[in-house]
């Protein structure tokens, strides 16, 4: 690890100001991606701006038709939340599958969404539920937020403060864990709303994406059989030492079926 300055502001505007005024500064939430990167000397920011002392970024609120999760809420809290378990059990299940207990206790929803790792779980939940990312500046719809490999619509001084999830009729998440890293080799989040179904896939490609043919099929018949024959184009999918693109494509269908099963169970 190389030396860096450390700031722990207690107001969001102060954090935003630090982020813009110090060249090469970085936000740190739970640090589950950033700290290992620093330790491997793959990144050397001049300063870290720690979000942990900012007020009101932790906690889960019930807004009736939506629930809002503060950006600094750890995965373990979401997984154990009675509110999330009751209203969007698929999201609580997703949170419970992230990493290991240590990661779930430190890692945050805001950090995961802002980082947009192509194999992270939360982007599938956020996109699959059509959630809204609330930042220090504005609200961004999930469909506009995730822009590909580690890229989001966030501007350099923008800080994610919360995610607002609409409560679906049913939702489920199925994840095929990469054996070593336990990230999603393929993870599929399926959510049924009154006006249709959304299907979001993580792990399979350079960023989270939706599968319109599956959404159409499931909107007509919310049952695994409706998508069993839908094949995913291997174009643009990831191929690496753990899984080839055609295997990932196959797993998308299998995991989508299992996500529907989970939603129905």
């Amino acid at each position: 690890m190389k030396p860096f300055a450390y700031h722990q502001p207690d107001q969001i505007p102060d954090a935003a100001k630090l982020l813009t005024s110090i060249e090469d500064s970085k936000l740190v939430a739970g640090g589950m991606t950033l700290i290992p990167t620093l330790k491997q000397r793959l990144a050397s920011p001049s300063a870290l701006v720690d979000l942990s002392k900012l007020g009101n970024l932790k906690g889960i609120t019930d807004d009736g038709a939506t629930i809002t999760i503060g950006a600094m809420t750890p995965h373990a809290v979401v997984a154990a939340s009675k509110l999330v378990q009751t209203k969007i059990p698929g999201l609580a299940a997703l949170a419970s599958m992230i990493g290991d207990p240590a990661v779930r206790s430190r890692g945050t929803i805001g950090g995961s969404v802002a980082n947009n790792d192509p194999a992270a779980d939360y982007p599938a939940g956020v996109l699959g539920l059509g959630a809204t990312v609330i930042t220090s500046k504005r609200e961004i719809a999930a469909d506009e937020f995730f822009l590909g490999l580690f890229e989001t619509a966030l501007d350099p001084s923008e800080i994610v403060t919360a995610i607002r999830f609409p409560v679906p009729v049913k939702a489920g998440y199925a994840k095929f864990k990469a054996p070593a890293s336990r990230y999603a080799l393929v993870g599929v989040f399926v959510a049924k709303f009154a006006d249709g179904v959304r299907v979001a896939v993580t792990g399979a490609g350079p960023g989270v994406f939706r599968v319109p043919p599956m959404e159409a099929a499931l909107s007509g018949n919310f049952d695994p059989s409706a998508i069993a024959a839908i094949k995913i184009d291997t174009d643009g999918l990831t191929s690496d030492i753990h899984a080839e693109a055609d295997y990932r494509a196959h797993l998308v269908t299998v995991m989508a079926k299992r996500a529907v099963e989970a939603a129905l169970s």
Binding site: P179, A180, S181, Y183, I241, H242
Partner: peptide, 24 residues
Amino acid sequence: LFENAVYDEGSGQLLSGSLMDYCM
């Protein structure tokens, strides 16, 4: 079932060079 040290032919890079990629 799990472990495999994989090298890239040509460059000689170890592709399974961490616990994230080498499955214990």
